[in-house]
Design a protein around this nucleic acid. Structure first.
Lengths: 243, 243
DNA sequence: GCTCCTGACGAACGGCGTTCGATGATGTAC
DNA sequence: GTACATCATCGAACGCCGTTCGTCAGGAGC
């Protein structure tokens, strides 16, 4: 015949056929998470909406719900994938403190690699595979180092909280001070300078201690603060070993 | 005359006078924060929207913007008021560890008194009066105890982060497991039981450490966990004093 | 060739923070 | 006492959000 369907424009009273649906390859939870990461890494966590992720896949938000129960579940999948990037060392009893430190930095780095994803890091009881892998690794290192099990169990919980909290705080700063990472750091430095100056103008009689130690309070950058708190926790763990 | 304006119904073609605006007493930032607390304490942080708060004052959301720049500023006022409930002890060198502990619990309690308000507690550089008061108090206690200033400065930062993080985590649980506090606790216990059972079904070969110590991991309630982490931090501070 | 099922997905619902512009009351200047 | 300028008030609207509903196309099974 004459291939009329391709030549004639569609009559206006007939609704357009919705999209080139035959050429469409099917969605999947994995593809949705891929798209979510593209949005996350390019525009930050706030941009990760069902609509925006669906857009990335050239479809509508409603289509996602066939593969993902709701946004909460999508975020859980994202969290798990972030944790999957973490390498966990084989416990070496002689180096247990150092290994804890390495693992902590590894977790922090994994979060920092994905913009402000650490805003999801708090308040999640570990149930996913990679979250459990993390807990297993941390606990194993402590036990190998001779920390008593009941202490190690609690310390794992507290250490995980501390790491998540620090990452969370960093992520908030990234989220609040512009989307571009370099730009954010620059703006944050400027903000810190403001705070520094502000602290110097505080009334000395009302805040004697604070005003007397402004320099000490502002001296460390965020990595140093993280390392210091980490050392505090590990240092105190040592006191449980030596007895 | 005859007081006609009060007797006759308003003619339908004349639009109603918008509200009994003469009897209306003026809004203020303080009244808005009051209303916000009413909503917060009754329905939780998620219910604190500009519309809902305005509703509480029998007005529209737009009216709030004359007294408060935006929602962020309203939340800041709320945070400050929560911190204002915290009592700060006069530093006593002999009891510095104990005083730190008391202050930490005081901060936690102030947050817990207002539902899931602690979800705002992280990532705020202290600039408000009460936030500074808190920092001043914590730092003064440490210095009185003989902690070197450069250590005390960092430790104040880390301790504040820890306290905020723990409260935050607690608030997330409250927010996620129903609005009523008693109900939330009950549901959370049930959830913990589920997790406990789940941990027991984990493959022993992949998670040998975790499965071997399920009981230790689940033994402590949230107050005990908080106290333990607090002790870890204070304990390590002691190691900086004794030299 | 027909039916049934399953993903896809446009449209809509009810929420959100915020802005705009009209409306009215109030205080000041003359 | 009147006119005017100023400012809080607030309904309506904008553009987001997560989620649900009902329709529809395509393929599988018969």
């Amino acid at each position: 015949m004459f291939g009329v369907t391709d030549v004639l424009p569609p009559p206006p009273w007939k609704k357009p056929r919705r999209a080139p649906s035959p050429a469409r390859e099917p969605l999947s939870a994995d593809k949705i998470v891929d798209a979510a990461f593209k949005v996350l890494d390019a525009e930050g966590l706030d941009a990760v909406s069902m609509r925006r992720v669906a857009d990335e896949l050239d479809t509508g938000a409603a289509s996602l719900y066939a593969h993902v129960a709701n946004k909460e579940e999508l975020l859980e999948l994202i969290r798990e994938r972030v944790l999957s990037e973490i390498r966990i060392p084989e416990p070496d009893p002689a180096r247990w403190q150092e290994q804890l430190r390495e693992l902590a930095f590894e977790i922090q780095r994994a979060h920092a690699n994905h913009r402000d994803i650490a805003r999801l890091s708090l308040g999640n009881i570990p149930v996913g595979y990679h979250a459990l892998r993390m807990g297993e690794g941390m606990l194993a290192i402590m036990l190998a180092g001779g920390v008593p099990p009941s202490v190690a169990a609690l310390a794992t919980d507290r250490l995980a909280l501390y790491i998540a909290a620090d990452s969370f705080e960093g992520a908030l700063i990234v989220a609040r001070h512009g989307l571009d990472a370099a730009d954010a750091s620059e703006r944050f430095q400027a903000r810190l300078k403001e705070i520094h100056d502000y602290y110097r103008t505080l009334p000395r009689d009302r805040f004697p201690t604070l005003t007397a130690h402004v320099e000490e309070l502002m001296q460390a950058d965020s990595d140093e603060r993280f390392a210091f708190g980490l050392d505090m926790l590990i240092r105190s763990l040592e006191t449980y070993v030596r007895r």
